[in-house]
């Protein structure tokens, strides 16, 4: 394989990994847009959603009905979170909401594993995670069919969310709530409904991310750790932009893979696991230059 082909293989592999990171980052963005809070529980929601789906399938329910039931569970969970956790915290400092999501994270991890067990489970979506022969023949590089499927799924999800939040009244209400809770309430926007809808959308994103990541890693506790991959994406892309989550994911995915291969080789292995720290370093540098991220809203506060 030529060096150029290898470079493109690393680059494309990185971009497709980035799409997987974006999927997780999307959930964070939705919650942040609606409530201005970093949802610490997003990773746990991914785990809970995947565990629920696999758990339901283990009861003998076929794929599609299990998917619908898992989605309903995530919706009910969203309404429950709004009622029990968020509603009492309206107009409270954002740090209180953040702390509540930390508690929620532990609750969901415990609840999911308590209900469905701690065993590692396989999840087969029927998509082969092997190099796509057509691409290999045409371009001479190996790209997994599963990665292509993930990228298409992510694109569809983003399109759906963009339509929902930009072309519907709920989307308009969301933008108003994100701007100012109290002002939104004052003009009659039902804050509770908006929050429940946004958490339900985050639940949908968690379910899709859980299925795709779970299919690759197995459904197990480690799914909750995929959130770690989303953090530099959010810093880079901005916490309030769906497009930012996608672009940030692509940049992080591609750059970390290229760094692992080329910096790792350059240092002769002296610097270990470049892939793990490079995205954070990149995000940190980016923070110094553009604190709000690529697509984030610039916050101007009068003091």
């Amino acid at each position: 394989m030529s060096d150029l082909n290898f470079f493109f293989e690393v680059l494309i592999g990185g971009l497709l990994s980035g799409v997987m990171y974006s999927l997780v980052a999307l959930g964070f963005v939705l919650i942040y847009k609606a409530s201005g809070v970093f949802n610490f529980a997003q990773g746990s929601m991914v785990l809970f959603a995947a565990l629920t789906f696999v758990g339901i399938m283990e009861q003998g329910i076929p794929f599609w009905p299990a998917l619908v039931v898992a989605l309903v569970v995530m919706m009910v969970l969203a309404v429950g979170i709004e009622r029990v956790v968020l509603r009492p915290l309206v107009n409270q400092p954002q740090i209180s909401l953040f702390m509540a999501t930390i508690g929620l994270s532990y609750l969901l991890e415990g609840l999911g594993q308590g209900l469905w067990g701690t065993q590692v489970r396989a999840l087969d979506l029927g998509i082969e995670d092997m190099p796509n022969e057509t691409i290999q023949t045409m371009l001479g590089i190996q790209v997994s069919t599963f990665d292509i499927f993930s990228a298409i799924s992510a694109a569809l999800l983003v399109g759906l969310l963009a339509l929902f939040f930009n072309k519907t009244r709920v989307g308009l209400a969301l933008r108003a709530v994100a701007d100012d809770h109290q002002a939104a309430l004052a003009v009659g926007i039902p804050l509770q409904h908006v929050w429940a809808i946004v958490w339900a959308a985050a639940g949908l994103v968690a379910l899709v991310a859980g299925l795709l990541w779970g299919s690759r890693l197995g459904v197990q506790f480690s799914l909750s750790l995929v959130a770690l991959k989303a953090l530099p994406v959010l810093i880079l892309g901005g916490f309030t932009s769906i497009a930012g989550a996608i672009v940030g994911g692509l940049i992080i995915g591609a750059s970390e893979k290229l760094a692992e291969v080329y910096i790792g080789t350059f240092t002769g292995g002296a610097v270990a696991a470049v892939e793990n720290w490079f995205p954070y370093m990149l995000a940190l540098v980016f923070l110094l230059v553009r604190p709000q991220g690529l697509f984030g809203d610039k916050i101007i506060e009068r003091v």
Binding site: F6, E9, S17, W213, L225, K257, V261, E275
Partner: peptide, 22 residues
């Protein structure tokens, strides 16, 4: 012998395995 470290928890190892392929 060539050693490749994988950082905890090892969720994504694509770049490492591409190097192994090389």
């Amino acid at each position: 012998i060539k050693h490749f470290p994988v950082a905890h928890p090892g969720l994504d190892q694509k770049a490492i395995w591409l190097q192994i392929k090389q």
